[in-house]
Nucleic acid binder design. Structure first.
Length: 716
DNA sequence: CGGAGAGTTGTTAAC
DNA sequence: AGTTAACAACTCTCC
C-alpha cells in the first residue's frame, strides 16, 4: 500500500502528514481518482478530518508556523509529466518551491551495464522532460546533480532547506536498497518522504501481498490478484503549472565516486568527465549531460527518446483502431522493419516517458468499440502490459535472487555452460562467469557478435547491437538458440548482453523472459524449440530482414538465405560472398572480391537433440536454484555423464560453477575415467538407447496435453 | 472420362 | 509465442 515515511522525531507533524497521504490513498483505491488537476483538491476542504484538529489543537499551531513545503521531486524511472501519481502527490503538498531533479548516480554510470544507445535514449528523455518542465514554468527545468543520491542528499537537504522528498517507487533490487538508504537519510534530516507507485498497472508490492507474498508466475495469477486489488487507476492529466524552484546555492563539496570498475569503459572514446565539473556540470547550470561529457562514442540507434515522441506514437497507434483492438503478439512479424510490427512503446515505458496506465486505458477505450471482436490477453496489447506487471511483481517478491539461478527457489537448476560466479558471502552473482568449456565460450561470443553462421540469428543480434531493439519473437529466437535450443549456455549470459544493448532494457522483464525462454521459470515446454531456418521462413520467404542486417548475403537466392552453406559455390560467387571460416573479426572479412560469411557453428538438429536431452535430465532431477546441492556444489552427483553441460564428476562449485582444482580432483578423475568421454570432444546425437529414460518429465506432459485439449475445445 | 501420380492441406504425435 | 514426420484426404494435371 502506498504510504509516506515520516520523521519519528516530529510525531505531531507526522500525524497531519500521514493523513495527507492517506487521503490520497483513499482517493486512488476508491477508483474515483480520475483526472485531477494539481490544484483541484484544497487542503482546507478535504485534507484533515475536523476531528483531528479538535483532538490535536497543537496541529494548527504546527501547520500555521511550519515553513511552507520546499519539495525535491526526484525523477528516476518516471521521465514524464502526464499520469504521474508521485508528481501529483508533490503538487498536492502545495509547495512554496519545487526542485525537479535527477541525481547522476555512479551506480548507473559505472556499475550497471548500459550501452551507448540506452545512454542516448535516457538523455533524450531527460532533455524532453526538461523542456516540458520549462514550458510549465520558465524558471524551472530538470536539474541534473552530478553526485550519488546517498551522499548528495544530506548536504542538499540542509543547504536548500528541503522539507519533503517525493519520488515514484522503484521495484528493482538495487533501487530498493538505494531508496531504503535514502529514506533513512531523509528521516535523519527531518525531511518527509512521499513515495507513490506509478510504474506499473498495479502497485507491485500490493500484488505480491495479495498473492500471499509469492511471486506471480503466470498471467492468470496476475489477473486474479488484479481483480482483488480493484480497477487499474485512471490516468492523471499533466499539471498545467509548476511552482518555482527555490535558491540553488551549492555551499558544500562534491563527493566524486571511484571510477573503477567501469563496466561501460569499452564505449568511451574519451575520459569520462561526469563528475569532474562539479555538481552543476560544465556550464554550472545543472544541464542534462551530453554523450561527450560521458566520454562516449556516438550512439547508433535510430530510436529516440522523450515523452513528446512517446505520446505522439501512442496517438498514431490508437488512431489505427483495427491494429489496436485486434493485436495478437504471436501474429506480428519479427522480420518486419521500417516499420516494425509491434508498438515500440517499451523503451518509453522503461524510462517512464509514457505511463503504462495511459496506454492501458486508451487501448481499452478502443477495445470497447469492438465488443466481442477484440483480441484478448495474453496475446492482446493489454495482455502484453499484464506480462510486464507479472515480471515486476515477481521481481518485487524475489529481489536480487530473481536475477540469478543461485538461491532462487523459482528458477529451475540446469547445468548450463558458462555459469555465473557466485560471491559466497552475499550469495549473489558477481557479474563474471566461469568458462568451464572453451567451445561454449566461443559459441557465446559468436552469438553475441552475430557471426554464428545462421543468418536469422546473426541478423537479429546485429540489429540488437546496432539499433538496441528487436522484435519480441526475435528475442525468443536468439534466447532459445543461446540456451536450450543450441548452445546450452546459461540464460544469465544472454540476459547480461540484452541488459547492455537493449534501449528498452527493463530488469524485471529481461530476467523474466530469459527464464521463460530457457524453460527455467514461467514456461516449461522445452521441446518447443525455434528453428533458425523454419521459423523465419514462415514470416519472410524472401529474407528481406536478413539482407538488411547481414549485407554480405544481400544477393543470395532466397532458397539459401537462411542456410547459405547449402548454396553451391557458383551461386555463392554469383552473390559475391563465400561461406567459409568463423567470421572471426581478427581475420580478413574479404577474400579477393568476395565478402565472407561464416559456416554454421554447429549442426542445428544435432545440438537441438542434445539440448532437449539435457533439459529432460534437468527436469527429471528437479532441483531449483535454492536446492542444498546447488548451494554447496554437490549438484553434480545428480547428473550422469550423458547430460550436456559441466556435469563430469561428482563435485562442482556453487550454482553450477566448476569446482576449484583440489586434492579430490584426482579422485574424481579416477572415478570417471572409464566411462567419461573427454570434455570438448565433439559428440554425436545421443542414440535412443543411451537415453537414461524416455519417460517424459511429468509437468510437461500435462501442460502440453491440457493446452491441446483447450485448443480443441476452443475450435468447437 | 478414369486413374496414376504429384501436390496441397490438415491432423496428429512425438521430440 | 516450435518443428518435424507421417498420414489421410483432398485437388490438380496429364495422358
Amino acid at each position: 500500500m502506498a504510504r509516506s515515511y515520516v520523521t519519528p522525531g516530529a510525531s505531531k507533524i507526522a500525524e497531519s502528514r500521514v493523513s495527507i497521504s492517506t487521503r490520497n490513498v483513499h482517493r486512488r483505491d476508491s477508483g474515483v481518482r480520475d483526472v485531477v488537476s494539481a490544484t483541484a483538491l484544497q487542503p482546507s476542504t478535504c485534507l484533515l478530518p475536523k476531528v483531528n484538529r479538535i483532538e490535536h489543537p497543537i496541529c494548527d499551531f504546527y501547520t500555521s508556523t511550519m515553513p511552507a513545503p520546499r519539495v525535491v521531486y526526484w525523477f528516476r524511472t518516471d521521465l514524464r509529466l502526464h499520469d504521474s501519481p508521485a508528481l501529483q502527490a508533490a503538487l498536492d503538498l502545495k509547495p512554496e518551491c519545487l526542485y525537479p531533479i535527477w541525481t547522476w548516480d555512479p551506480h548507473y554510470v559505472y556499475r550497471a551495464r548500459v550501452g551507448v544507445n540506452r545512454w542516448q535514449f535516457l538523455l533524450d528523455c531527460q532533455n524532453d522532460l526538461s523542456k516540458g518542465i520549462t514550458k510549465l514554468n520558465g524558471k524551472s527545468k530538470l536539474f541534473v546533480l552530478r553526485e550519488a543520491p546517498q551522499t548528495l542528499f544530506p548536504k542538499l537537504f540542509r543547504s536548500w532547506r528541503i522539507t519533503h522528498l517525493v519520488f515514484e517507487k522503484d521495484t528493482d533490487a538495487y533501487a530498493k536498497d538505494r531508496d531504503r538508504e535514502v529514506v533513512k537519510i531523509a528521516q535523519e534530516a527531518g525531511v518527509e518522504v512521499v513515495m507513490r507507485s506509478g510504474r506499473t498497472l498495479w502497485d507491485s508490492d500490493e500484488i505480491v501481498k495479495a498473492h500471499g507474498g509469492k511471486p506471480t508466475m503466470s498471467i492468470t495469477q496476475v489477473q486474479a490478484v488484479g481483480a482483488k486489488l480493484g480497477p487499474i487507476a485512471k490516468p492523471i492529466l499533466a499539471p498545467t503549472s509548476l511552482p518555482d524552484p527555490g535558491d540553488m546555492k551549492l555551499d558544500f563539496a562534491q563527493e566524486q565516486p571511484g571510477q573503477v570498475p567501469d563496466v561501460n569503459a569499452k564505449y568511451r572514446k574519451d575520459e569520462e568527465r561526469s563528475y569532474d565539473t562539479g555538481i552543476a556540470g560544465p556550464l554550472g547550470n545543472f544541464s542534462v549531460p551530453t554523450l561527450e561529457e560521458l566520454g562516449l562514442k556516438p550512439a547508433t540507434t535510430p530510436h529516440r527518446g522523450g515523452e513528446s515522441i512517446a505520446l505522439a506514437m501512442l496517438d498514431t497507434i490508437i488512431a489505427n483502431e483495427d491494429y489496436t483492438a485486434t493485436f495478437e503478439k504471436p501474429k506480428t512479424a519479427p522480420t518486419a522493419f521500417e516499420p516494425q510490427a509491434t508498438t515500440l512503446m517499451s523503451p518509453y515505458l522503461h524510462f517512464g516517458a509514457i505511463s503504462v496506465r495511459l496506454i492501458y486505458h486508451r487501448v481499452e477505450e478502443v477495445i470497447k468499440k469492438y465488443k466481442g471482436k477484440a483480441s484478448q490477453p495474453p496475446t492482446s496489447l493489454t495482455g502484453q502490459l499484464l506480462f510486464r506487471d507479472m515480471y515486476f511483481a515477481a521481481q518485487a517478491a524475489l529481489g536480487y535472487r530473481f536475477g540469478q539461478t543461485y538461491n532462487n527457489d523459482h528458477c529451475r537448476f540446469v547445468p548450463w555452460h558458462l555459469p555465473s560466479k557466485i560471491d559466497e558471502k552475499t550469495g549473489l552473482i558477481t557479474g563474471e562467469h566461469d568458462i568451464n568449456d572453451a567451445s561454449a565460450e566461443e559459441m557465446f561470443v559468436r552469438w553475441r557478435e552475430g557471426r554464428t553462421g545462421f543468418p536469422w540469428i546473426d541478423a537479429l543480434m546485429r540489429q540488437l547491437k546496432h539499433e538496441g531493439w528487436i522484435h519480441h519473437l526475435g528475442r525468443h529466437a536468439v534466447a532459445c538458440f543461446l540456451t536450450r535450443g543450441g548452445c546450452y549456455v546459461s540464460w544469465e549470459r544472454g540476459a547480461e548482453v540484452f541488459e547492455e544493448w537493449l534501449v528498452d532494457h527493463e530488469a524485471a522483464s529481461n530476467i523474466g523472459n530469459w527464464q521463460w525462454l530457457s524453460c527455467t521459470a514461467f514456461y516449461a515446454q522445452f521441446y518447443r524449440c525455434y528453428s533458425p531456418i523454419a521459423f523465419p521462413k514462415k514470416w519472410d520467404q524472401e529474407g528481406a530482414f536478413v539482407r538488411r542486417f547481414v549485407p554480405e548475403l544481400r544477393s543470395l537466392p532466397a532458397k539459401y538465405i537462411y542456410e547459405p552453406w547449402k548454396a553451391p559455390l557458383q551461386d555463392q560467387r554469383a552473390a559475391g560472398v563465400l561461406i567459409k571460416g568463423k567470421g572471426d573479426p581478427e581475420h580478413q572479412q574479404k577474400e579477393g572480391d568476395y565478402a565472407l560469411y561464416p559456416k554454421p557453428m554447429f549442426d542445428f538438429a544435432e545440438r537441438r537433440d542434445i539440448c532437449i536431452q539435457g533439459l529432460k535430465k534437468a527436469y527429471r532431477v528437479g532441483m531449483f536454484g535454492n536446492h542444498q546441492k546447488v548451494l554447496d556444489g554437490t549438484w553434480r552427483e545428480m547428473f550422469d555423464d550423458d547430460a550436456e553441460g559441466p556435469t563430469k564428476g561428482r563435485k562442482g562449485g556453487p550454482g553450477g560453477t566448476t569446482a576449484e582444482q583440489q586434492a579430490d580432483g584426482l579422485e574424481e578423475a579416477k572415478d570417471d575415467a572409464p566411462v567419461t568421454p573427454k570434455r570438448g570432444v565433439k559428440r554425436g546425437p545421443p542414440s535412443p538407447k543411451a537415453t537414461v529414460s524416455s519417460k517424459r518429465a511429468k509437468g510437461q506432459e500435462t501442460i502440453d496435453g491440457a493446452f491441446k485439449k483447450m485448443k480443441r475445445k476452443g475450435k468447437k
